[in-house]
Simulated assay, not measured.
Amino acid sequence: MDAMSHADTRAAEPRAISRIEQAARHSPYQALIEKLEELDAYSHQVMHQWPKIERHVLAAEVRASLLRARRLCAVAWKRRQKSSALFDLDIEIEVLRHFVRKAYRLRYITAHRLHVWARHIDEIGRMIGAWIKHEEHRA
C-alpha cells in the first residue's frame, strides 16, 4: 500500500519541460493563439444569445473572421517574410472590430459586453502590433 501511494505521487509530478518546448510556449505565436482562443470562446458565448436569424448571418461573419485570424496567425508564424501576413492579420482584427460595433448598434450586445469584447480585441491588436514592430527591427 505504501509503495502504491508513492507511485501515485510520482505520476502526479509534472515532467521537466525542455528549452525548446519552453520557447515554443512563450513564443509570440503561442501567446497570440491563446488570446485568439479566449476571444473565440467569449464570442461564442455572446453570439449564442443573439436572435436566431442573426446567428446565421452576422454571427457567421464573426466566426469566419475569427477563423481567418487564426489561420493568418499560423501563416505569419510559418512564413519567412512575416510582414504581409501580419498586416493581413491586423486588417482581419480591424474587420472583427467593425462586426462587434455593428452588433452593438443593432442592440444584440450591451455596452458592457461591447467593452469586454473590445478589450479582448484591443489586447490582440497590441500583440500583433508588437509582433510587427519586432519583425521590422529584425529586417
Rank of each mutant, 00 (worst) to 15 (best):
R25H: 12
H98A: 10
K102E: 13
Q81M: 08
V57A: 13
L72V: 04
K78A: 13
L66P: 02
Q81V: 08
A64C: 09
A118K: 06
R25N: 15
I20C: 10
L32C: 09
I93S: 01
W131G: 00
E21V: 06
E37D: 15
Y108H: 14
L66A: 06
M47S: 10
I91Q: 07
R119Y: 07
L89S: 02
R55K: 15
A74T: 12
R70F: 01
L36E: 11
A69I: 07
K82C: 01
R71V: 12
Q22R: 13
A118E: 14
Y108G: 06
I124Y: 03
A111K: 09
W131K: 01
G129F: 05
S43K: 00
D90H: 04
R105Y: 15
R55L: 09
A85E: 02
K82E: 06
I33N: 06
Q81I: 08
I91G: 02
K78Q: 14
E21T: 09
S84H: 11
A69K: 00
A59Q: 03
S65P: 01
H98V: 12
R19W: 11
I33E: 15
L36K: 00
R113M: 07
E61Y: 07
V46T: 07
H44T: 12
Q45N: 05
H112G: 06
A85Y: 03
S83F: 09
I109E: 04
E37Q: 11
A60N: 12
A76K: 00
V75C: 01
I128C: 02
I20V: 10
R107T: 14
L89V: 05
E21D: 15
